[in-house]
Design a protein around this nucleic acid. Structure first.
Lengths: 228, 228
DNA sequence: CGGACGTTTCGGCGCCCACCGAAGCCCGGC
DNA sequence: GCCGGGCTTCGGTGGGCGCCGAAACGTCCG
């Protein structure tokens, strides 16, 4: 079986797809949490998770009697988002998690949703970052402005990739990924521009939700010209 | 079932995956050709193709007693390539179609493979194109150089997207997609820098192969600094 | 008009695989 | 040491779905 079919088959099972979506924000989840997300028993979960790990899509870290699972890398998260951004099949329905979900959420460790793509647009359009082989590099003026905002550029540069695009499945436009995406997100949450929405019920996907604080809205408007 | 699982499930079937891979170069294939690629009968093919069309991944154009199928859009081709570029599963084998396959081939209508990613790297690294919202734009000097080479920029601009990245599954690095990618490819084949390798046997995938002519190798080196 | 060919529909078969319950394993805590 | 909880392995079951052959449909051609 070709590589394409093998991988797509892994993602294509409803239970496994639910688990992968739950892992999209980049957090590590235990087998039990994955079981609840997928709505199946422990035995079935074990088999499915094993398949995901052996395929290399998911990596596992044993700690005590828990086993923590996370996506194997940012490319995996990016590929999943790309798939989700493909034309919706048949009768196009509303977004599965409501419109609030689209404003801002975490993808791997960077901001996605409307704010994510707006940020990408401003950073590239206003000359904060410029094209570089394999992604983006900070411009001279961009570096100064980013540091002034409290973004740790040195930490961003230690990532495998400094900055690159990740296709946003709800907006169908790219948002910023890579070390810079992570550090900007870190800055925004540290300064309380964005805050996490804690999961209400068993829906772990809600963990991805971010809310924009009033202060964050002002700051995004002032610093980037983004209406949140 | 979530959108992710639905789409991945469609791609995940070996027969459908083989068809989609055969459609990657962007050509339209009849149901009979797709049947041969997938190695299944006409009846099964009809059902599988129907699923692909109804999902929106593939579009169909009836002409006489033939029905021509093609990928619904460049995003679909891009998503497929992204999936194929994910970490190979289990015992890593050699490339399915030999190493020659990696030098150059068509992805949708643009050049992929080693030459494709090298071209991407030079165009972005040497200032032919620069970052723009949603992709790339030609720089002033880039425009002049491209036109001098015989690239039809006006035609490239009429495409939905002028230039953007497409992840290359064999090289794991981006190559150039969008109208500009198509027009550069058109120029290269028109000037016989690259030529098509016609399929030897029933393997329609081989249709994607491109070969670099001696003249093409000289031109790539002189114009872009690419060793082919 | 009839035959050939490409394609679709129908009916039926068979296999794969995702699921569960029960038992076993490993770790941490009392 | 013994229990409890998280996780895995094993055996068995069932449903979904991908396949085929046969028949029907539509189109082109002689």
């Amino acid at each position: 079986m070709s590589n394409l079919a093998t991988i797509a088959n892994l993602i294509g099972d409803p239970s496994r797809a639910a688990m992968l979506q739950a892992l999209l924000p980049g957090e590590a989840l235990t087998a039990g949490e994955l079981a609840r997300v997928a709505g199946i028993g422990a035995a079935a979960t074990s088999a499915q998770v094993k398949a995901l790990v052996e395929s290399g899509l998911v990596s596992v870290h044993a700690q005590g009697r828990h086993r923590y699972h996370r996506l194997a890398g940012e490319e995996v998260a990016s590929a999943l988002e790309t798939l989700m951004a493909l034309p919706q099949v048949s009768p196009r329905k509303s977004w599965p998690h409501g419109d609030a979900f689209r404003q801002a959420r975490l993808c791997w460790h960077h901001v996605a949703g409307r704010i994510g793509v707006a940020l990408h647009e401003r950073l590239t359009g206003d000359g904060w970052i410029a094209a570089a082989p394999g992604g983006w590099a900070a411009t001279g003026s961009g570096e100064a402005r980013l540091e002034k905002l409290g973004v740790d550029l040195a930490a961003a540069r230690r990532a495998p990739r400094f900055a690159c695009d990740c296709m946003d499945w709800s907006e169908r436009r790219p948002h910023l990924s890579g070390g810079l995406g992570r550090e900007i997100t870190s800055m925004m949450t540290r300064r309380l521009w964005l805050t996490r929405i804690e999961p209400l019920a068993t829906d772990l996907l809600q963990r991805r939700r971010l809310a924009c604080t009033p202060e964050g809205a002002r700051a995004l408007s002032a610093e980037f010209g983004i209406a949140a």
